[in-house]
Simulated assay, not measured.
Amino acid sequence: MSLTSRIKPISYLKANVAEVLTKLNEQREPLIITQNSEAKVVLQDVTSYEETQ
């Protein structure tokens, strides 16, 4: 998956929370959330997160 498809505005997250969570768990690729056109957070599934710890 390309980096640009993994960058979404916070409004997208708010409108599609269930879909985002499903995709995070299935694809195991982080999602970058922007606010006011700036990257603010990275969402990641728990398994991937635990692997990095």
Rank of each mutant, 00 (worst) to 15 (best):
M1P: 10
M1Y: 08
M1Q: 11
M1V: 11
S2I: 14
S2H: 12
L3Q: 15
L3S: 14
T4I: 15
T4E: 15
T4P: 10
S5A: 12
R6M: 09
R6I: 08
I7G: 06
I7K: 06
I7D: 05
K8T: 08
K8Y: 09
K8W: 10
K8D: 08
K8V: 13
P9V: 08
P9I: 06
P9L: 10
P9H: 09
P9G: 08
I10M: 14
S11H: 08
S11N: 09
S11I: 10
S11T: 11
Y12Q: 00
Y12N: 04
Y12K: 07
L13N: 02
L13M: 10
L13D: 01
L13T: 00
K14F: 03
A15M: 09
A15G: 07
A15D: 13
A15P: 04
N16P: 03
N16A: 03
N16T: 05
V17R: 04
V17M: 04
V17C: 04
V17G: 01
V17S: 00
A18F: 09
E19V: 03
E19C: 04
V20S: 01
V20R: 01
V20Q: 05
V20E: 00
V20M: 02
L21V: 06
L21R: 02
T22L: 03
T22K: 03
T22E: 04
T22D: 02
K23N: 03
K23S: 05
L24M: 01
L24Y: 05
L24D: 03
N25S: 08
N25H: 07
N25I: 08
N25T: 07
E26T: 08
Q27L: 09
R28Q: 06
E29T: 05
E29W: 03
P30V: 07
P30D: 02
P30L: 03
P30G: 05
I32C: 03
I32K: 00
I32M: 07
I32H: 05
I33M: 01
I33L: 02
I33N: 04
I33G: 00
I33D: 01
T34E: 15
T34Q: 11
T34A: 12
T34I: 13
Q35M: 14
Q35K: 12
Q35Y: 14
N36T: 14
N36D: 14
N36I: 11
N36R: 13
S37P: 08
S37Y: 12
E38F: 08
E38C: 10
E38S: 08
A39H: 13
A39D: 11
A39E: 11
A39S: 13
K40V: 13
K40P: 09
K40H: 14
V41K: 10
V41I: 15
V41E: 15
V41M: 14
V42P: 05
V42E: 15
V42W: 07
V42S: 11
V42A: 12
V42M: 15
L43K: 06
L43R: 00
L43C: 04
L43N: 06
Q44F: 10
Q44D: 12
Q44L: 13
D45S: 01
D45T: 03
D45H: 05
D45F: 03
V46S: 01
T47F: 00
S48N: 13
S48E: 08
S48H: 07
Y49D: 07
Y49S: 04
Y49K: 10
E50D: 12
E51V: 06
E51L: 10
E51R: 05
E51T: 07
T52A: 11
T52E: 11
Q53K: 14
Q53Y: 10
